[in-house]
Structures are given as structure tokens and as C-alpha cells.
Design a protein around this nucleic acid. Structure first.
Lengths: 225, 225
DNA sequence: ATTAATATTTAGACAAAACTAAATATTTTA
DNA sequence: TAAAATATTTAGTTTTGTCTAAATATTAAT
């Protein structure tokens, strides 16, 4: 019989755990102080302070000068925050009709609301979605995600056909670029030509022929047909 | 042409403004330091500190030893928080099927999420409700509420008929008592007898005959038919 | 109208989370 | 491998929001 120690995790702590989770590919890899500082817009010294606190609470593994990784408890805590973030994003887009480039900042706030019952009811209300509006996977109650096989569009070969299933960069600017060029999750894409000089390519997206730079194809996940 | 100074109001500040708003009947009346301390579960000295800060920001009128009231700016800020609280309560009950005694604590968190667009979209999604699940009025975008004429059930006379439209106490315990006795917003109530000794009364609620104490009738708002 | 009781404010401390500047490790480069 | 560059940590402050204990004001009671 386990004793569930329910620990108070502050909003700041949650944000640090989330940063480590994302930077360290779901928390497994070790992450540098500076990388966290960059991502969170804080000074390296602040990061060190917070990491010590998180280590004290057994949420991260920390060895001076060697970087940090999440403990199992930290991983679950981070994944739960990410789960809430992505569920709220689905709510905002599906129910309140926000555009996919508008939801991030609001979800950043909503993800910190504490109520297990709220999360599970929201999940049910949304029909147990597995992906957020940007194609990112939604962790389950236990913090696990089931990943699908996908490739970067830039890796495909001439004449390959695929479906857009996700993005690396989800910045507002990139999302607006995709809207403008009628590229969306679920779009059918075929590679019509590749330019070896600058690695740009011409593609057919749901019938529209457009040319995209390597910057773009490097940020689009697709599933090959 | 007015310059809208958008001021950063912290979560704590919002909670103090809300307390003053509720204690001072929408912020008009002057409220005592101790009353605020009681409501917010803080020490009187902490309240004094915060009041000074709010006065500095022109959100409250403050004269030492004379209590505080909200300025127009403070009133609007408080009303906006209350608006968000009550809209979220409607969402939780209507869309996520929470019971009316479960929603307060979650709405306390959601009310602090900052996004005007979110509030207006939520409002529309819910069909522009004017009352929350406990019958309390929802302020409009400008912080104004339109109140309806209502009386306390305890004030009515023998054989009067009425409809339940609101509650003074919205504590979980009271809400559960009402559920148990099948009293809900919209219930039709007729006064069958009044006991002058303890001011209890026998009433017919949608066909059920029950006896309620003065404690109960003093906390139920009704509209006379 | 004094005294007693209560309410309010001031003064001084503390914890959380951030910062700057200085010190120390580590890594890179010549 | 020693010097230079970069990364990380330590030390000392700051801000926000809280607290306790002591001082002062206001209100109630004899």
C-alpha cells in the first residue's frame, strides 16, 4: 500500500518542471542551466536557485555543473501540467472557436488550475482527444503519451505523398504562415520537386501548388502514405 | 479622448478588491479592516498593508481608521473578477455537469485568468447568462448588474406563493441541504403554516411538504407570484 | 469623563522568487 | 597544456505578501 504524498507545487515550480520536460525530451535527458534560463526568460542564477528547491523536493536529479533531469515524480507532475495545457487548447479551439495561433498564452494560465475532477470532466467533455490543435500528443492521466510514427517533411523524397500530422515550432508567426498557405493538420501533401541548392521544395497541398523553404519543411511533421 | 491606463493587478490584489466589493454591497459602502481580514483569512495588519497599496493604485478610497471603499476603477476591476467567477461557474455546471456545491473553489482559480477575449467568447458560448448556478447576478462587461425584485422567504405571509430565485449563503453545506430537500432555483413554494415561536415554517415545494427553520427561510430569496 | 475593551496601524521579520555582481568550474582554442 | 571563453554557482539584494508584537486610536461601559 502506497502513501500518496501530495506535495504543494507552486506555479513557478510547475513552469520549471515543464521547461525541463520539454527541453529534455519528456524529462529523460539531462538539461543545462542555461537552456532552462533561456526558455523561461530568467537568469541562470535564478535557475540554479529553483533547481536546488526542486531537488530538495525530489522532483529533479541534480548534480552541480552536470545539469538536471526529472525524477519519476517530477516527470508525472510535468506531464500533468502539459496534459492540462493541451486539453485547454482543444477546448479553446473546438468549443470557443479560437484560432490555433491564439490559444497558447491563455492555456499557459489555465494549465495551473488545480482540480483533478476538472481535468477528467474536461477530458470527457472534449471526447478524450489525443492531440492538441497543433498536433502535439496529450499525455493521459498517468502522464504517458503514445507517439505515432512521423517524419519531417524535409526528409521525404521526390513524389512521396503524406499527411501533415504535427509541427515542431508552434509560434504564432509560423501558425499564421501555415494558415496563409492553407496548410493545416490533416492536409494531404505531395512533393513535386526539390531544389538541392537551398533545399526548398515545391509541394501540392490539398490541390494548391506552393513553394516552401527548408525552414518550413523542417518544422512540419508528416505521416507517409 | 480617455487614455486607458492598463494596470497590472496581482492575484492577491484581485482577491482583496473582491472582498471589499462583496462586503460593501458592490463596493459603495465603507468596509472595516477586520471585516476584510475575517473574510480573507488574513491578519488585520496584512490587510492594512494591502489597502495602502490599493489606495496607492487608486483602486480604493482609504482614510486611516475610517475603513475602505472602492473607487470607480476598483469597482469595475472587482466586478470583472466576479463576472468571470460566475461565468465559469455556469460553464462548470452547464457544460461539465458539476453539481452546484462543487464549483466555487474551481471558479476561485479560473476567475484570475486574464484574457478579455476569453471572457467574451465564454459568455457567448454559454448563451449570455445573467445568473450563476446559485442565482447570483452576473455583471456585464462594464461591471454593471441588473438586479431583480426579490424578497427573503422568511418575510412572506401565510399562503403566499413564490418562486425560488436566489440564496444568501452559498456554502457547500447549505447547497447540499437544499438538494436533499429538493429545493432548487425555480422551485415553486407556498407557505402552508408559520410557527411564531421559533419562526419555522411548513412549505410546499413543487408538491413536497417540508418544514424549514428560520435559518433556512432567511437564506432563500424568492419572487412573489 | 475616565477607564476598559476593541479595532487599527506601525515596526520589524520572514519566505518565495526573482535579480546583479563576483567567484568558481568546465570547455574550447591556440 | 595553458590561456581564453563560456557556463554555472555563490553571495548578497530586492519585491511581494504575509506574519507577530507593540503602539496608537476609537468605541463602549461604568
Amino acid at each position: 500500500m502506497f502513501i500518496l504524498k501530495l506535495m504543494m507545487v507552486t506555479l513557478s515550480e510547475e513552469n520549471y518542471l515543464k521547461a525541463i520536460y520539454h527541453l529534455g525530451r519528456l524529462g529523460s535527458l539531462s538539461v543545462s542551466t542555461n537552456a532552462i534560463a533561456d526558455r523561461i526568460n530568467a537568469k541562470a542564477s535564478s535557475v540554479t536557485d529553483m533547481i536546488k528547491k526542486l531537488a530538495e523536493k525530489n522532483l529533479v536529479n541534480y548534480v552541480k555543473y552536470q545539469g538536471v533531469s526529472l525524477t519519476e515524480q517530477g516527470r508525472i507532475t510535468a506531464a500533468t501540467v502539459v496534459r492540462k495545457h493541451r486539453l485547454w487548447e482543444v477546448f479553446l479551439v473546438e468549443k470557443l472557436n479560437f484560432r490555433w495561433d491564439e490559444v497558447h498564452d491563455i492555456a499557459e494560465q489555465l494549465e495551473h488550475v488545480k482540480s483533478e475532477k476538472l481535468v477528467s470532466k474536461l477530458d470527457a467533455y472534449l471526447g478524450y482527444p489525443t492531440r492538441d490543435p497543433h498536433g502535439d500528443p496529450i499525455p493521459d492521466k498517468d502522464g504517458n503519451i503514445k507517439s505515432i510514427e512521423k517524419s519531417l517533411l524535409s526528409q521525404l523524397r521526390l513524389n512521396d505523398s503524406c499527411v501533415c500530422v504535427g509541427l515542431i515550432d508552434s509560434s504564432s508567426d509560423f501558425l499564421k504562415y501555415l494558415d496563409k498557405n492553407k496548410i493545416a493538420l490533416g492536409s494531404n501533401i505531395q512533393i513535386l520537386s526539390k531544389e538541392s541548392f537551398d533545399d526548398s521544395m515545391t509541394i501540392n497541398v490539398d490541390g494548391n501548388i506552393i513553394n516552401i523553404s527548408q525552414q518550413i519543411s523542417n518544422n512540419l511533421y508528416v505521416k507517409i502514405k
